[in-house]
Design a protein around this nucleic acid. Structure first.
Lengths: 211, 211
DNA sequence: TAGATTGTTAATCGATTAACAATC
DNA sequence: TAGATTGTTAATCGATTAACAATC
């Protein structure tokens, strides 16, 4: 894995480029310059060119970037040119909201990019077998089996803080490589595993500084 | 405002220190070293000392930090030593989940730190007047008035992308200083206003790279 | 060809880490 | 006093920005 070569901060910007490119009709505007893309993303043109240069040469000097090509390349880089199977653990308020979110307006966006929520997990007997926004809820003990069977490579953690590490470890053992963690805990993360934290409490508390 | 002096990245770490300190009983362990705090937060001891040094001198050489004092100082720095009033706009799936989240286990945490969700807003007639987790839902047109009356200084944006900028501008005009934005849009942000983005779609898409 | 815009290198900036004198 | 740990300075690291030759 030479992935370490590309800084995470660069990877985090690629989806933004993708989003902006998706808003343009390539029939009408087939080419975009780094200046125009910079205008629309809030990223400087130089930064955009630098970011893209980590992956190859996608533009034409004196001309710009062909939108269709650049979109395809970005999708390829992000693995979004194929289906990426996502799971979710913990169908409480937040988990349920997330399932519906992924089923609403954002579903089109996520699915267009190949991201599909395939299964949800909970330990509450009452919830097992229910469907939320078309996603079935399975018992947590079936996770190892279903991670393998459904090839889940991204997991959304919307579990209570107390069980987050345990659930996380189970997922890692099962082969999940990337996580979006909503639990307010510091996870112990093995090498090669990527975790994005979405810790609302910490975010609100730091906002208080500016209030 | 000399606030610009302290890097945002430092501010973002302070709530983490606060969380770890809150987990310790100061009766039993009254003093903590930067090494111990580093152990528990995953931040290097040097970094912690550097971060704190932006705000003053809180420790004793050869001894460490008095937990009660350090907690109080961090709260003061983050404005969490007084009540900080928070509003929420857009009571859809995500907005509702957030209200319940702020009412559940995390409510204790948030309230202990002075953060209180005081009002929610929506344009749907049906939702007006309802209460979710004890928070009343008001019509959006009452926002300017209620921001002033309830002194809302932080706003959580859980509105659809299409109206996010408009709602944001209204809040800014009303005097809101800090935002937690869940809408998948690039907001045009005036100077002096702080926005934290929680854009799930972008986060999931960048995770696909590691999947 | 002249103008435009890329890809890339070098310069700058800012944040993290290392190291240690100060001092409890 | 001796040992420990802070507060702070200097060195390092990495990311952003500026600049420009290459070239369409």
């Amino acid at each position: 894995m030479r992935k370490r070569k590309v800084p995470d901060v660069v990877i985090n910007r690629l989806p933004l480029y993708l989003r902006v490119l998706a808003e343009i009709d390539p029939e009408q505007t087939p080419i975009i310059s780094s200046y125009e893309l910079g205008e629309r993303t809030g990223i400087t043109p130089g930064q955009i060119r630098k970011d893209l240069s980590f992956f190859g040469v996608f533009g034409k000097q004196g001309v710009g970037y062909e939108i269709t090509t650049l979109r395809a390349e970005l999708c390829r880089i992000l693995n979004l040119d194929r289906v990426v199977n996502v799971g979710l653990v913990g169908v409480g308020n937040l988990g349920e909201a997330f399932l519906r979110y992924g089923a609403g307006r954002q579903k089109e966006v996520l699915n267009r990019e190949g991201l599909v929520i395939k299964a949800a997990f909970d330990q509450d007997e009452q919830k097992i077998g229910r469907h939320i926004a078309g996603v079935e809820i399975f018992p947590v003990w079936q996770m190892p089996e279903l991670i393998a069977r459904l090839k889940l490579t991204i997991m959304i953690l919307t579990v209570p803080a107390g069980v987050a590490q345990e659930v996380f470890d189970t997922c890692v053992a099962g082969g999940v490589k990337a996580f979006l963690n909503f639990a307010p805990v510091k996870l112990k993360i093995p090498a090669g595993i990527r975790v994005h934290h979405a810790d609302f409490t910490l975010q609100l508390e730091s906002l208080a500084y500016y209030s």
